[in-house]
Every structure is written in structure tokens, then in C-alpha cells.
Computed example of a mutant assay.
Amino acid sequence: MLHPVGPLPAAVYWRRRLLVLALLLALLGGGGWLGVALLTGSDDEAAAAEATAASTPAGAPALDRVVPSLASVQTPTPPPTSAPAPAPAAPAPPEQEAGAVCRDDVLTLEVRTPGTVPAGSRPTLELVVTNTATVPCTRVLDKGLQEMVLLDAAGNRLWGSNDCFPEASSDTRTLAPGEQVAFPLVWGGLTSEPTCTAERVPVAPGQYVLRARLDTKTSPDAPLQIT
């Protein structure tokens, strides 16, 4: 190989060998370049495919194509609720006519007591009538229309001012606005009942209330303690 033999000069054979060697080197270099190019191109295509896949929005799930979104579903609007109507106000009582009969609603009754009295004593009680109207009015204040009763804690009636000593009188008065009229009454401290036939005994110590009446008008209860 290193010492070719032939009819031609040795330089010719060396040039041929160098040419073949150059061709081989060229082939080898071109093949390597082609392989590198192929590998690089594959990597670039893969990267481009990945970028394209990343930039492309994912398709909607199959369920979204079948079931509409909640935003597209219209729910019925409930009818507006109206505020409850205010309760009708109680009608105001008619105004008291000046000089006419005093109505019950313009009169107040009050029982005044000493508060505490000894058992068996004779306390003085008072029935007070007041005209609360802004005009004068008239009212019959006869003794027969007045009554005071004593009640225990259970509401049992123990005494009444008209049971044994009813009184009669003719007393019609014109009451000025704000005027008060007091009617004193002495109670003997004994029990009684409307027929006044039962035995009368001293009321035992305890807590009681007194209630008064003027015809159809009734007073609030007033406490009375008997010791």
C-alpha cells in the first residue's frame, strides 16, 4: 500500500490516493453534517409542536356541551313582597261637649286610703272624682250611685259600703275642667255582705285592696294593709 508499483510514476499514484482520501473525508463530513441537521430539525419541530399545543386552548369538556352553564339559565324572579299594612289606629273618643253629661271616659275615680290601719279600727276612706275634659260637664254624684268594696288577695268580697248602711242623696254637679270632688267614708273595720244578714266580724290582718264605683265608672284598686 505504501509503495505502489506500476508503470506510472509514484507521484501519480500518491495524487490518486490523496484524491480518494479527500473524497472519503468529504463524504464523512457531509454525512455528519446531515445527521446533525436532522437531529437539530427534529428538536426544533418538537419544540414548535409543544409551543403550538400550549398556545392552543383546550377544548371544552363534553359535559359543557351537553349541560348549559348556570349563567345561561334564567331563574324566575320572585314577586316583590309588600310591607304589611299598618294596624288601623283606634278611633279617638269624641270630644266632650261643654255643659253636657260627663262621659265615663273623661272622668277618673281614685280611692284614697291611709295605707296601713290596725285591725278593728275605723279608718276614713275617700272616693275622688276628677273631670279630665277641657270643658265643663255635669254628672250625677248621688250617694246611691257611689260604692266602695274591700277584696282579699283572692278577689273575695269582704265588705261593701252599701251593704248595711246605704245612703241616698240628690247631687248633680257641674265639674270644671280638672276639678276634683272628694267623698269621705268611715269604715267600721267589719265584714259585711249585700243582705247584711251574716255576722259581721273584724277583718283579719293582711293585705287587701279597695275598689270604688260611681254608677258605671270603676276605679283602679288601692292597696290597704291591716295589721
Rank of each mutant, 00 (worst) to 15 (best):
Q96N: 02
L23F: 07
G188R: 09
R16E: 14
L63E: 13
A119I: 06
T172C: 01
V36Q: 13
D104F: 05
L18N: 09
G120K: 09
P220K: 01
G31R: 13
V135W: 03
A47N: 08
N131I: 00
R122K: 14
R16Q: 14
T218V: 13
P80Q: 10
A11D: 12
G41L: 10
P123Q: 07
S170E: 14
A54N: 04
L107G: 00
S42M: 12
L109P: 04
P76A: 09
V203G: 02
T195M: 10
S72Y: 07
L107C: 03
V73W: 08
L224D: 02
A22T: 02
Q74M: 10
A90M: 09
Q225K: 12
D104Y: 06
D104C: 00
V5D: 02
T75Y: 15
L107K: 07
R139T: 06
L19Q: 08
T108G: 09
G32E: 10
R213F: 11
S69A: 14
S82R: 12
P9R: 13
T124N: 13
L158E: 03
P194H: 05
T138D: 10
L127H: 00
G6S: 07
G144P: 03
P223A: 09
P86V: 01
L2K: 11
E50L: 15
L21M: 09
R211D: 04
W14G: 13
L8M: 10
T191L: 04
E193F: 03
T52S: 12
R122M: 12
D163W: 02
A54G: 02
V73F: 09
P7R: 10
V128W: 08
P118D: 13
L28A: 15
T227Q: 15
A182T: 14
A168K: 14
C102H: 05
L175V: 03
M148S: 00
A87L: 15
L210T: 02
L145V: 02
W187Q: 00
S69D: 15
L107H: 07
P76C: 00
